[in-house]
Nucleic acid binder design. Sequence first.
DNA 1: ATCACTTCGGGTCAGAGCGACACGAACCGG
DNA 2: CCGGTTCGTGTCGCTCTGACCCGAAGTGAT
Lengths: 262, 262
Amino acid sequence: MPAPTPGIGLAVSTVIFALRPNETGEPSVWLPLVRRIRDPYLHRWALPGGPVSVDESLETSARRNLLETTGLQPTYLEQLYAFGDVDRSPTTRLVSIVYWALVRPEEAERVSLGENVRWFPADDLPDLAFDHNLIVEYALWRLRTKMEYSRIAHAFLGEQFTLAELRGVHEAVLQKPLDPANFRRQMESSGAVEPTGEVVSGGRHRPPKLYRYAGAVELVDAGPLTARVVAAAAQHPPISRDDGPAEPRVAESAPALQEDHR
Amino acid sequence: MPAPTPGIGLAVSTVIFALRPNETGEPSVWLPLVRRIRDPYLHRWALPGGPVSVDESLETSARRNLLETTGLQPTYLEQLYAFGDVDRSPTTRLVSIVYWALVRPEEAERVSLGENVRWFPADDLPDLAFDHNLIVEYALWRLRTKMEYSRIAHAFLGEQFTLAELRGVHEAVLQKPLDPANFRRQMESSGAVEPTGEVVSGGRHRPPKLYRYAGAVELVDAGPLTARVVAAAAQHPPISRDDGPAEPRVAESAPALQEDHR
DNA sequence: ATCACTTCGGGTCAGAGCGACACGAACCGG
DNA sequence: CCGGTTCGTGTCGCTCTGACCCGAAGTGAT
């Protein structure tokens, strides 16, 4: 339709969420930021991102950039919003397509930390570059809203999980305690999860059953775009790196993992 | 962050919805399309849109372009999604920020119809340019989804309206009949509407009360972006053109308007 | 072995919300 | 004054949900 627009930079940024224990040991929402090494906003913390190249789609660009800057491969990735106010960058005109992503705790700990990449608690951020504070705020709102009507919580967990772990994710994101009995009832009646038959022993209490997500139920109802999302997810399976130790999951090794979660 | 990206066109398009009577006289969802006068997709029907200039925000660009191509000033305008697949345009690489809009029936009828602008029923479209069929499908899904949990219906109506008119909007969008009594109960208990005190006489039945939207309740909960949306709406008040005849609204003249709606 | 302690998992109960439906109220036209 | 229409109020039953209870099933200490 238009000739290539001159003078407007097109970038993709991503808000990445993961659950990590805060100072009191309880899990809460964190996100990685990168320090800017260029003007504008030199040395300020900012969302990971970069320009879109001509031969990659927006989502592909987000994935590639995420891998390059933080080493992360998210289990969930969705477009958030396009930010394009004229004055959002003090120098050049900049339009950013922003995505938001969820990663698992194991994956999160692999982030190559350094002077220029660091985790921050989502609700206590410094002054970020551009309008990134607003963007994070909006992404957090979307995360919390979506947590209540869809099934994104599992993107924070592994293949199998106990209902207590799943409830822990909800509690961490929504920042309020949930009744275990009622939570169980809802999950079971929704048909979203199914028991695997295995249990986790080792805790000093009755061993809980392990569950998995029932594939029949859609992860998220994104409407007509769902087909594209699902197809894209198939191309990028939820983490299956061949480096690093496999995560021991069942029986005696489970308690250690629970420590990570709570 | 990035230098201006070369080789990628940046455009804004808008899916505009209005309620118009279909062949059986009942109101249904329509949208205006424009015929392309350039390659690619020469002569195909497409969403109104155009390039973003460096000195206007995305939303401003959408509003300006809408006015230029169709003459419409929507009462509701919200960003839908950014489409940026590599192959969505056969010639140049094209990223489109798509908005969706709602306009009132009176406003809709002002669209300067011609060989190159025409209304189409939303669920019976021809083959459109680019991926615009998918885009419209997604916009329709958003419209229907959002109708159920927010208050966008009023964007299809004037300042005052009867509950039957409001229910008519919901029925047209959701394509299913709603129980008048239950619909009334919901609207009243939600506190979203309040009676103006006036009634509409002239119908051969009990005269219905007129309502307006209670300003206290947010139009839509868009989260942290709401403030920006509200501010933008204040700059673009919901239609107050000084040309054209004022719409007679109350008492004896109301029945004629009802004809438009049902 | 038994007990204290923990979480798991199944159950009850009351209140809110909603769909379905009934019926008087109010107006018009004949 | 009567039939026809929609408006507006009320009722009933079902479902969902939040709050709470308690036995079940483990571990660790005595």
